[in-house]
Design a protein around this nucleic acid. Structure first.
Lengths: 224, 224
DNA sequence: GGGAAGAAGTTTACGCCGTATGTATACGCT
DNA sequence: AGCGTATACATACGGCGTAAACTTCTTCCC
C-alpha cells in the first residue's frame, strides 16, 4: 500500500521548477538555496538532502532542459535535413529557458536524453561522411554554437521587467546613434538590427542554418 | 612638472591585470573586490573609485581582451579569406584568457577596438554580397560562436591544478567508458575525442573554418 | 504493536561576497 | 596659506554557500 506522501514534503522536481522560474525571470544569479527553500516552506539546509551542492542543483536544471528535447524520429530524408531537424529540436527546448541554456553543455554526455541526442547526431554526421572523430569534434562545436545562439538571444534578455528592458534598449540605441557615421558607416547603418534583430524566428532559423551550412562546408573541405 | 605618482597608489590597469590573472587561474568566480584590493595593498572600497561596480570591472576586462585583438590590414585577397583572418585574430586574442572570453560580447559595440573589428567584419560581409542587415545578423552569430569556441575549449578548463585536471578527465573517461557500446556505439567509439580533442590548434582551426563555411553557405542560400 | 534505523528537516555558525554610508588624508591650484 | 577634490579607509548590512550537530518523522521488521 502506497502511503500518502505527506512525508516527502520536499519534491526535488518542484524545486527545479522553481529554480527555472527564478532564472527565467531574473537570471541564474538569482537562484539561491535560501530563496528556493523559502518558496517551499523549508530551511535552506533541507535542500542538501536532495542536491549535493549548488553545482548539483544546476546540473539538475541542465538535465531538465535536455529531458525536454523532443527528438524527431529517423526518416529517409537526407542526413543533413535530419540533422537540421534534430538541432532545431534541441534549440526549441533551450528557448524555453534561455538564461540557463548553457547548463546543458556539461550534461549532454551524462544525462540519458543528452546521450541519445548526441548519439543521433553522431549517426547523422557519420552517415554524411565524417569519420567518427571528426563527427565528435564537429558535433561538439555545433552544439556549443547553438547553445550560445540561445543564451545570447538579444530579444530574450531582461524580459522580466518590460520597463527596464525598454530602458536598456534605448541606452544601447543612443550609444550607437552617438557614433560617427563617417568612421563606422556600416555599424550605424545596421544599428537597429545589431541592437535587436527583426524577427525572433528568423534569428533562430538563420543560426541553425549557419550551423548546418558550416558542417556541410567543412565536410566538402575534408573530402577535398 | 609631473610629480611622482605616490598619490595615485592604485592603477586601474594593474587591477585589471590581477583580475585577469585570477580568472585565468581559478575562473571568473574567484574575482572579488576584496581579493583584488588585498593584492594591491588597499581596501575593497578603494576599488570603487575606479570601477563603478563589479559589472564595470568585468566590462574593463572585456575591453582589455578586445584591445589585444591585432586586426590584420586589408589586403586584396578574397573577402572570405580576409574575414577568416579577422576572425582568427579575434580568437587568438581571446585564447589568452579563455575563462573570461565571453565578457567581450557585450563590449564589442562599445569599446573602440571592438567597434573597429565589427565595422571591418561588416565591410567584408557586405563585400561578399550580404545586405547590411544580413551582415549584422550573420556577423553577430559568428562572433558569438567563436566566443563559445574559446570559452568551451575542452583543453583550457581547470588548467590551474594539473592534478585536479587529470582527475576530472579520468572521471569523464570513466563515465563514458561505463556506457553500453551497444546502445551508444558512436559515442563510446569517439570517447577520447569527445573528452579532449587531439590537437588544440586543430580544434580552433576547425571551429573557425566551420564558422566561415557557415557564412558562405547561408550566402549561397540567400542568393538562391 | 514496539522499537530500532535511517531519512528529512532544523539550528546555529563560519567565512565569504557586493556595496551603502560616512570619515580622514594628502595633493594641486590659486 | 588654505581650499577643493581625489583618494583611500572604517564600519556595517544583508545575502550567499555550506559544515556540523541536533531533532523529528517514517518505515519496516520482529
Amino acid at each position: 500500500m502506497i502511503t500518502k506522501e505527506t512525508t516527502r514534503r520536499l519534491d526535488p522536481d518542484k524545486v527545479v521548477d522553481s529554480a527555472l522560474g527564478i532564472a527565467d525571470d531574473e537570471g541564474p544569479a538569482a537562484i539561491s538555496f535560501r530563496r528556493l527553500a523559502a518558496q517551499h516552506g523549508v530551511t535552506a539546509m533541507a535542500l542538501y538532502r536532495h542536491f549535493k551542492d549548488k553545482d548539483d542543483l544546476l546540473a539538475a536544471l541542465g538535465d531538465r532542459l535536455l529531458a525536454d528535447v523532443v527528438l524527431p524520429e529517423p526518416t529517409d530524408e537526407r542526413w543533413d535535413v535530419q540533422l537540421q531537424n534534430v538541432l532545431t529540436a534541441f534549440v526549441t527546448a533551450l528557448r524555453e529557458h534561455p538564461r540557463v541554456a548553457d547548463l546543458t553543455l556539461l550534461r549532454i554526455l551524462v544525462s540519458e536524453p543528452g546521450l541519445a541526442m548526441a548519439e543521433r547526431i553522431m549517426e547523422l554526421l557519420t552517415e554524411g561522411g565524417f569519420s567518427v572523430d571528426d563527427a565528435a569534434e564537429v558535433g561538439r562545436q555545433s552544439i556549443s554554437s547553438l547553445i550560445s545562439l540561445v543564451t545570447t538571444d538579444p530579444m530574450a534578455r531582461e524580459v522580466s521587467d518590460p520597463v527596464a528592458r525598454e530602458d536598456s534598449l534605448r541606452m544601447k540605441r543612443a550609444s550607437l546613434a552617438a557614433l560617427s557615421p563617417r568612421r563606422y558607416p556600416l555599424i550605424t547603418a545596421a544599428a537597429d538590427t545589431l541592437i535587436c534583430p527583426t524577427s525572433r524566428d528568423r534569428y533562430y532559423a538563420l543560426g541553425i542554418e549557419m550551423t548546418v551550412a558550416g558542417i556541410r562546408g567543412v565536410l566538402r573541405e575534408e573530402k577535398q
